[in-house]
Design a protein around this nucleic acid. Structure first.
Lengths: 335, 335
DNA sequence: CTGTTAGCGCGTTCAC
DNA sequence: GTGAACGCGCTAACAG
């Protein structure tokens, strides 16, 4: 194996041009397959070889500067603590799908008012935020950001992204519980922000789902994430809703909280209360009893997000959302 | 509230210069507080006001182009599925700490051989990778990347970052179990990559820790993440290691797997087997019995990573690592 | 057809 | 405090 003199600085198109004995313009033409230009096969080869030889990669900055827009997608992470496994998997997938689409993902922590400093410095091609105020979105669009999409937003995109997910979840949870004979349901959620944001939304979707099936209105069951507290809340809740026999849990933690409260009360799932959680995490499979869960295919969501954003970036019509978020039920013993 | 004419395109330093009636150079001097230049207080004000008025934010691309290095830190995410809550929290913190330090975090999915395409296009100021081959690291450094750090790497940085963490975990787990009278320990881990990478490393640290205390050599206990499988493995393991009475679990899932296997065998923690897990997740608090866990302060790790990287970027000597990763024990009922 | 020269985009920095 | 030039890739406009 023979080592070449490695350039101290990274190779630029000028280096490639020099080595290939052509102009920088030609290098650009060859490497971009510019349609309006034809280049002789011989020259093309020389340029390609030179690029290879120098392991040349065009500077994203210079390109962005020229085009007035970079190829980076600015992703504002969900609020602190919301980066749970399921979202983590989606983030992971997003990063590879975006890079396959020629975009790179820059992430920032979510703030209610994203600083112009940030999105304005990186001139992102698109911004994907957790929950974006309409005027912020408008401001971004005006300064050249093509795709502005919010995860839980009220804009069309936001609904595209979240709609199928939340709906699928509610539908499948209710379906599973109804199939087991439960018609009086509750919605369990843990966390300090009980019934805010996504939780509130999920609850509403759930209510609609129950209404559509002619079931009685589901009741909210906000639980603390400790066994003793969960037991107390659970007991009071049962007294207020004596008919309730099934619970749709917001996530794994909520399902586990219900389970642990029940254990303390001497109740047993599904006999005393049936549970369907969301997200097929290892903890759900290892619970006692193992939890029946509704899981979403993160790939479906990730692909749709990337599809929408790449379309926006390329100024193409946005693809219609998949009619399902790839939801499926993992049957275990809690229903 | 009075709205100004919003410029169609984002403001550039030329716009600010025009509005302030000075040259672009001056704008640059003022906004960067260039030490070698003195600017009159009056001019300074005018520039600052103009910048404010136009809500000017310098273009990161142009700056990177000029400086030959961007302010982005390229973070290669842990392998698929490893973006669990604990790492998620660190990633979250990293993103805010980096942005406070004037760096922006670009994330990419980890591949064993990070494509030059990626890191070479964004000319990152630093690269933080999961486990970086030495020659890749060298290649990056040679093309101008200042800070090249790997999470689990064998380089000094890698050991700085992981060292205290893994050591703290092992030390506190063993300490807790020894305090409860257990001297014959096991190391429980789940996942397909049993005893590879971090798991292997953690196991070795654990062995050293036990050796240092004069305990017998701990044995590996690789478990499947389902109750039945866990029970089988657990039973066999107990037969081979009749004296073992305590388990250090790699994470929450491993701890839950041990617990669920024990339940199926009719064993009870801590009487039949004591467990200390890692990461104080909600699932641990809600388990039956509630799990005693060793938790690390993600803030300590995140701060150290950012400190090291910003130092490298600024060509300053790297700070010495904190002697602890902020580990603490959350006592519950499994020991 | 094949390829070149000129100049833009934006912030920084070197001389004056 | 300023003009000029640089860093890098792209794209008109233009010459063999």
């Amino acid at each position: 194996m023979h080592r070449h003199r490695t350039p101290a600085r990274r190779a630029t198109s000028a280096d490639v041009a020099r080595l290939a004995g052509v102009s920088r313009t030609t290098v650009s033409f060859v490497l971009n397959d510019t349609p309006s230009q034809s280049i002789s096969a011989d020259t093309r080869r020389r340029v390609l070889d030179a690029a290879q030889e120098l392991s040349y990669a065009p500077s994203a900055e210079a390109r962005a500067l020229g085009r007035g827009r970079s190829t980076s997608v600015l992703l504002y992470l969900p609020p602190a603590g919301s980066l749970t496994e399921d979202i983590g998997v989606i983030v992971e997938r997003l990063s590879v799908l975006f890079s396959e689409a020629g975009l790179s993902m820059v992430i920032h922590a979510w703030t209610r008012r994203p600083a112009a400093q940030v999105w304005s410095s990186v001139t992102p091609a698109a911004v994907l935020a957790w929950d974006l105020a309409d005027d912020d979105a408008e401001r971004m669009r005006r300064s050249g950001v093509r795709g502005v999409v919010s995860w839980t937003g009220s804009d069309e995109m936001g609904r595209w992204i979240t709609g199928p997910r939340e709906h699928d979840i509610a539908r499948m949870q209710v379906q599973r519980l109804v199939a087991a004979g439960h018609t009086h349901l509750g919605y369990a959620v843990t966390g300090g922000d009980h019934m805010h944001g996504v939780s509130q939304w999920r609850f509403e979707v759930l209510q609609r789902e129950c209404a559509a099936r002619g079931l009685s209105r589901p009741s909210a069951l906000p639980l603390p994430a400790d066994p003793r507290g969960a037991a107390e809340v659970l007991l009071r809740w049962r007294e207020q809703h004596p008919g309730a026999s099934g619970v749709c849990a917001h996530d794994t933690t909520a399902a586990l909280a219900v389970l642990s409260g029940m254990r303390r009360l001497g109740w047993r799932a599904p006999a005393d209360l049936a549970i369907v959680g969301v997200n097929d995490s290892p903890a759900a499979a290892l619970a006692d009893p193992p939890l029946t869960m509704v899981a979403l295919d993160p790939e479906v969501t990730a692909r749709h997000i990337v599809a929408v954003i790449t379309a926006l970036v390329r100024d193409e019509p946005a693809p219609s959302p998949p009619d399902t978020a790839g939801a499926f039920t993992v049957d275990r013993d809690s229903v």
